[in-house]
Write a protein that binds this DNA or RNA. Structure first.
Length: 197
DNA sequence: CGCCTTTGACCCGCGC
DNA sequence: GCGCGGGTCAAAGGCG
């Protein structure tokens, strides 16, 4: 299931596929620290997609633990894979998959200002996708939130942005982070809203 | 000088 | 065991 969101700064609508999170537990604020979010009605609009490849992994990882700090090194165990995360490594990466959220945004721009400061640390060409995948880390002190940005392999007009982890700080620009919460019906409520759909 | 991007190398899990 | 693919590291260079 998809949900549409708008961000005038991206000048495009966004189709959000929720990855690996029980709908009943998901809160956007767990991924993006929001300031002054007065109306949580929008959160109810978020929905879960079970189609993602990470779903199975997530179901077997620490989804039942809710969404803690992705940077934590506490031990996490599950029934199937017996994932234990004491140090940085692949096993922890698996656990982090459950804390990811993917935005599918129609945009000509791959770099979209979401209010946080990101530092690029990798670039990789992925199979079945002629467009490279870019890897970013949050530049915030002690914050290890990561995001992957790539063009949709099926439609290069769309950009897939996957956030992994939870910010341990507030964004310097709270305005932007509230954008994903806005339903498309609210576009006209935004200042200088433009819609290129 | 500090921070950033670039990019090849490396590591690891997974499938065969 | 081996090769492949995805993710990360780290050195080098650019830029303000």
């Amino acid at each position: 299931m998809e949900q549409y969101f708008g961000n005038p700064n991206f000048c495009h609508s966004a189709v959000v596929n929720m990855a690996a999170s029980p709908a009943s537990e998901f809160k956007i604020s767990d991924y993006l620290i929001l300031e002054d979010v007065a109306d949580y009605h929008h959160e109810e609009c978020w929905s879960l997609s079970t189609e993602t490849e990470s779903s199975e992994k997530a179901n077997s990882s620490d989804a039942s633990h809710g969404f803690g700090d992705a940077t934590s090194t506490t031990t996490t165990t599950n029934n199937n894979n017996n994932i234990k995360c004491k140090n940085k490594g692949i096993k922890q990466k698996k656990a982090e998959v459950s804390q990811s959220i993917t935005f599918r945004t129609r945009s000509q721009l791959e770099i979209m200002d979401d209010g946080y400061k990101w530092r690029k640390y990798g670039k990789k060409t992925v199979k079945n996708n002629s467009n490279p995948r870019n890897y970013y880390k949050c530049s915030g002190a002690g914050c290890s939130v990561k995001k992957r940005v790539e063009r949709d392999r099926n439609d290069s007009n769309y950009v897939l942005t996957t956030y992994v982890g939870v910010h341990n700080h507030h964004t310097p620009s709270s305005y932007y982070t509230q954008m994903p919460l806005l339903h498309s019906d609210d576009w006209n409520l935004l200042p200088s809203a433009t819609q290129n759909s």
